[in-house]
Write a protein that binds this DNA or RNA. Sequence first.
DNA 1: ATGCCATGTGAAGGGCCTTTACATCATAGC
DNA 2: GCTATGATGTAAAGGCCCTTCACATGGCAT
Lengths: 214, 214
Amino acid sequence: MAWSGNKEDGEGKSRRGYHHGNLREALIAAALDLIGAKGPAGFTFAEAARSAGVSAAAPYRHFRDRDELLADVARQGFERFEQFLSNVWNEGRPDARTAVNHLGKAYLAFARTEPAYYSAMFEANLSLDDHPELRKAGDRAFDIVRKAAEELSATLPSRPPSLMLALHIWSFSHGIASLFARGDSGRRNLPMSPEDLLEAAMLVYLEGLGGPKT
Amino acid sequence: MAWSGNKEDGEGKSRRGYHHGNLREALIAAALDLIGAKGPAGFTFAEAARSAGVSAAAPYRHFRDRDELLADVARQGFERFEQFLSNVWNEGRPDARTAVNHLGKAYLAFARTEPAYYSAMFEANLSLDDHPELRKAGDRAFDIVRKAAEELSATLPSRPPSLMLALHIWSFSHGIASLFARGDSGRRNLPMSPEDLLEAAMLVYLEGLGGPKT
DNA sequence: ATGCCATGTGAAGGGCCTTTACATCATAGC
DNA sequence: GCTATGATGTAAAGGCCCTTCACATGGCAT
């Protein structure tokens, strides 16, 4: 009786009697912390196991290998991202154009506020072929933008192809987020915030599509 | 006399008597091959050393650590990129608008034809603070776009801020290249080529800036 | 109460990164 | 021409990681 059972010292790493009881989720949480601290490359399976208080071999009962854990973090990230985008889109209120602008901003906000998820999703170089669930989750998040683009297109005289519209919005947001809205590493001295840069681009782009004369 | 001196069996890995004679460049070349084959994460210092036919410790005579070799590959990549962009820009001929379109296409072309360099440059998560030469090389490449944006701006009635223009062009090209113009991993089924997607975006964007009525 | 199966352990093989002491050799200066 | 010296390469070792395998534990259904 040296140990006393279920504690909760700080992070979720104790409560053990041999079986962890919640290892899978504990590993995902640990991975998220580590990725946030040292990037997707710095994260190691062994350290995640240590964080969870189990041996280095234990994670293999829940994930095929290190990449599968990473992919699961990324998948979860896309699911949160999807939900976030969905909330921000808010059924196209107050109007499609404004809501689409919110969507772009949300992309940047996610990259900034959830750098660990963002890293796993876009910087871990995971093969989508090896992780079909990841691809599906990504597609579902994109579908939010796709749907928004459809509604926006319907409000524009030129009726641009909505898929093209969606790809443009996604690409632009992704480009700005990747280059300017990540950790200090990639930061170049901008004369404006990434948000302003994106907003200006959207303004010009939608003007080019012949938006309603403001 | 078991060995016979300077051979050239296939790749540049032989000519040895103890000192390699050209190890630094051989390592960069080997790294490029490996990155191309297995991505920046798959590349290892040890394997580069093996490719060059030296022991695992030898590379440390030429690079502080693994990251410095990676950074040197990336720096070389930015230098090639700069030159490529410069050639494509071609002093703004036949006209600024067309030449800027070429610039965007060149971004995609580089991502596709030099995936190893592109990986090292944009997907290796190198700290720009730890590798100042890398940052400078990247800035020089961006300067080509910056200069192009200045000349393009001068041809537009609205005279948009050229730095903003340059950032928009770079971001958009980067976003499309990262998402759609890389190896099979990131490929989603597009209804159009990345090039067409980019061209359409540029068309709309420049229209939005009030370009000369085509 | 018992036995099955999911879950966790320890050890081991193989690999990588990096450092250190030592080996080799090109060449500068005598 | 000959040697000292610094640049370049080697072997070995420590530390960490990934992954597998045989074995231990104990939750849960019967």
